[in-house]
């Protein structure tokens, strides 16, 4: 993460948001595998939430858009300064994409531990990874200087 725009706190924030999204998705899938016995009350309550599982997951991924948006807005001055001292916009963008992907991959790998613990399919979170990659690529187009 040399010359990265990401500070430690930014990495933690992004990491936490990814993990919340991955864990929520896994818990939704796990709850469906549970045998709730005769408890119809619990079953119908969980059903009313699981019914909207996909919508809730996508809504939660929206928080990552907020992260990218605020991050790039805060970093505009820093990007200008870097370009002043000899960096290029292309390099900044490439580093931003690579750093974002690294954080995504690490959080995905960490979420796999939960996958194994709950004995769920390892591909469960892949669609979210795909969505997050799209967010990263779109936000890369918004890397601008002041």
């Amino acid at each position: 993460m040399k010359y990265s725009l990401f500070r430690f706190i930014d990495v933690i924030e992004a990491f936490a948001i990814y993990l919340i999204c991955f864990s929520t998705n896994l818990i939704f899938i796990y709850v469906q595998t549970l045998d709730l016995g005769d408890s119809y009350i619990l079953e119908s309550f969980l059903e009313s939430i699981i019914e909207y599982q996909l919508v809730i997951n996508i809504f939660l991924t929206f928080i990552m858009i907020v992260f990218h948006y605020q991050f790039l807005n805060r970093k505009k001055t820093e990007i200008s300064c870097r370009i002043l001292v000899g960096d290029t916009m292309v390099n900044v963008v490439i580093r931003y994409i690579l750093n974002s992907l690294t954080i995504l991959v690490f959080s995905f790998l960490l979420s796999l531990l939960l996958n194994f613990y709950l004995e769920l399919n390892v591909t469960s979170n892949l669609y979210l990874v795909f969505i997050f990659i799209i967010y990263i690529l779109i936000s890369a187009g918004k890397v601008e200087k002041e």
Binding site: F59, F62, I63, I65, V66, Y69, Q70, N73
Partner: peptide, 11 residues
């Protein structure tokens, strides 16, 4: 900054 407002409404 409508994205922040939308993010808040979503949550």
């Amino acid at each position: 900054r409508p994205i922040l407002v939308l993010g808040m409404i979503t949550l």
